[in-house]
């Protein structure tokens, strides 16, 4: 995953420019299944999503992370995708997938420094359209878990738009949004003494739940890191009975 500067992180809702909290996802998927033209996309929507009233313990999920060529979804492209299927009780490495794909946007040397995927790596890699069917099949029927949802949502949507002329919509359980919800705000006196609110960066969130340090910027490792973080957040602040509609957006 790409780490945004703190100023942009703070301003998360304006960056995403979405308000999907009130969406009835099962109904929305039925509509999209009817309107989608690409067969893989049709199948993805037809698989549906669990109802918002489902307990989180019963929800099949998939943690997802992208490495990208830059921060701007309009200009940038996806370089790698990490997927790790999970439930609340188990993260399953057996179903984990990692793809390196060739972005249509230029790979900036700046981003190479971050994720370590080089020009020669992507020269041999397929275009996203080649793995699209597999990707959508992996996502089908599962709720996506991501840290900072707008990256995954908007990069994937733009990439699909560019390749099949259709975008994609999907619900996300955003561990960063959950971190905002549960973080302890410093009190008046603490603010006066200069105490900042807890950081919501992935590594900082993980440390608060005593999760081990992982080297960042590898899509599959970051997806795994995010999956573990969700388990920890639910264990500490929610319960296995918490319903999906409380968590996704």
């Amino acid at each position: 995953m790409f780490y945004l500067p703190r100023s942009q992180l703070q301003n998360e809702s304006s960056l995403s420019g979405e308000d999907l909290s009130a969406v009835d996802w099962p109904a929305r998927f039925r509509e999209l299944a009817a309107s989608a033209r690409h067969p893989a996309l049709q199948q993805y929507y037809q698989a549906g999503v669990p109802a918002g009233s489902t307990a989180i313990a019963d929800v099949p999920m998939v943690a997802m992370d992208f490495e990208t060529t830059g921060l701007d979804p309009q200009q940038g492209g996806i370089v790698s995708i990490g997927l790790v299927p999970m439930t609340l009780a188990r993260i399953s490495c057996a179903g984990a997938v990692h793809w390196i794909v060739r972005p249509r946007a230029r790979l900036s040397s700046e981003s190479i420094v971050v994720h370590g995927i080089t020009h020669s790596d992507i020269a041999a890699a397929p275009d996203l359209s080649k793995v699209l069917d597999d990707l959508l099949a992996q996502l089908a029927g599962r709720v996506v878990v991501a840290h900072h949802r707008s990256i995954e949502r908007r990069f994937l949507s733009n990439a699909l738009q560019a390749r099949i002329g259709e975008s994609i919509e999907f619900p996300v359980i955003d561990t960063m949004a959950l971190a905002y919800r549960v973080r302890r705000e410093p009190g008046f006196w603490q603010r006066l003494r200069g105490r900042k609110p807890d950081s919501v960066r992935l590594a900082d969130c993980r440390r608060r739940y005593h999760l081990p340090f992982y080297r960042p910027h590898h899509a599959q490792t970051d997806a795994l890191a995010c999956a573990e973080l969700l388990q920890a957040q639910i264990a500490h602040h929610f319960s296995p009975q918490t319903v999906l509609s409380d968590l996704w957006c």
Binding site: A89, R90, I91, C93, Y209, A227, E228, A232, A235, H236
Partner: peptide, 14 residues
């Protein structure tokens, strides 16, 4: 081995 591992998190006391 790694490919077949499952992972789970437990809060202290659980």
């Amino acid at each position: 081995v790694a490919v077949q591992i499952s992972i789970a998190y437990f809060k202290a006391g659980q």
